[in-house]
Simulated assay, not measured.
Amino acid sequence: MIRSILLLGLALLLASPGAFAEATQYPLTVQSCNRQVTFTKAPEHALSHDINMTQMMLALGLRSRMVGYSGVSGWKAVTPQLRKQLAGLPELAAKYPSVETLLNANVDFLFAGWDYGMRVGGDLTPQSLAPLGIPVYELTESCAFVMKRPAASLDDTYTDLRNLGRIFDVQDRAEQLVGQMQERVAVVQQHLPAQRPRVFLYDSGEDRAMTSGRLGMPEALIAAAGGRNVLDDIEASWTRVNWESVVERNPEVIVIVDYGEVSAAQKQAFLEQHPALQSVAAIRNKRFVVIPYVAATPSLENVEAIETIAASLHGA
């Protein structure tokens, strides 16, 4: 009997993802967008930019390897849970860090993305930091700004977690987080009907709407929740569109991203009162869903966004 129990326990351990993941062998080379980045050891003075990437680092248990984070208080609303996790961890820049900021903090690793702290031709890029000995890992979803790639997918988030796990030698924790996300998504998708309501994501903007095409994470979230992004034919990540385009595509549900100085309630009121949108089904039927910024961008909160959107779309 005891032997059977021991064999069962061993079988369960062997079946667990990452239960016996090999330790990272340095030097380690990982793919980052259209580059390969080599690490001679696990970083010890890491900086993460934006709340979503900072959340990933913290969830992987890497707080002790971080000198701080950037790009949060100047832009985003932080949930009470994340505020507790951030307590005591320095924010090196409220919006965009400079090269000098990184050098002064002795940063040896930057986790950022294109349009998430970096811009093509800007001062802070993998190319500008390489001569300074600061390797950069780019958020996978953001690679659409510098290379041709397929539509955004939850695999983008899984890839980032796994690559961070390898870089910092915490593969077991990375696999555990990925497994938990996959299990929750599977539960949602077991109950989805065949009908896919038309969905428009509204980030911000009045003259034009800031939204997301097929290359941004909202595309993956809406699809996984059983909806169809009305802008899924636009080869863009985060982008702006005219209100005429929204009216023509007539979304049945509008997802509002909650962050910044304008509240979600204020954004909804603006949409409801916009003269050009009165014929839109979502406006007529007052069908709105609100998700926080951290859930709309690649992060662990992607699963919660899928659950929230699916519940609104299908009443699940």
Rank of each mutant, 00 (worst) to 15 (best):
A105I: 07
L110H: 04
A144N: 15
P131R: 12
C143D: 08
G88C: 01
K148A: 14
E138D: 14
R83D: 14
D123Q: 14
L86Y: 07
V120I: 12
G122F: 06
P131E: 11
F145R: 15
L139M: 15
F145Y: 14
D123P: 10
G117D: 09
I134L: 05
L102I: 06
N106A: 12
F145E: 14
A130I: 00
L92C: 10
V78A: 09
I134E: 03
P150I: 08
Y137E: 05
L92W: 06
V120H: 08
Y137N: 08
G122I: 09
L139K: 09
T79L: 11
A87I: 07
V107T: 12
T125F: 01
P131S: 11
A77E: 13
P80M: 11
G121I: 01
L102Q: 00
T101Y: 00
D108N: 14
L129K: 01
N106D: 13
A77D: 14
A93F: 00
V99L: 12
L102N: 06
V120A: 13
L82C: 05
R119F: 04
L110A: 07
K84R: 15
L139Y: 10
G133C: 04
E138A: 14
N106S: 13
A93C: 08
D108T: 09
G122A: 11
R149W: 01
Y116T: 11
R119G: 00
R149P: 00
R83W: 07
L103Q: 15
P126F: 07
R149D: 06
P80S: 12
D108R: 06
V78P: 05
A144W: 13
N104K: 15
G88V: 08
L82P: 03
T79C: 00
V120W: 07
M118G: 06
S128K: 13
G88S: 05
W114E: 04
G133V: 03
Y116W: 05
G121E: 08
N106G: 03
A77G: 13
P131Y: 10
G88H: 09
G113P: 04
F111L: 14
K148Q: 14
T101C: 02
L92R: 09
S98M: 03
R149A: 09
N104H: 14
A77K: 15
N104G: 09
A87S: 15
A130N: 08
P80Q: 12
K95M: 00
V146Y: 05
E138T: 15
G133Y: 04
L82T: 11
M118E: 09
M147G: 01
P150M: 08
K84N: 13
Y137T: 02
L102F: 09
A152Q: 06
F111D: 07
P97T: 06
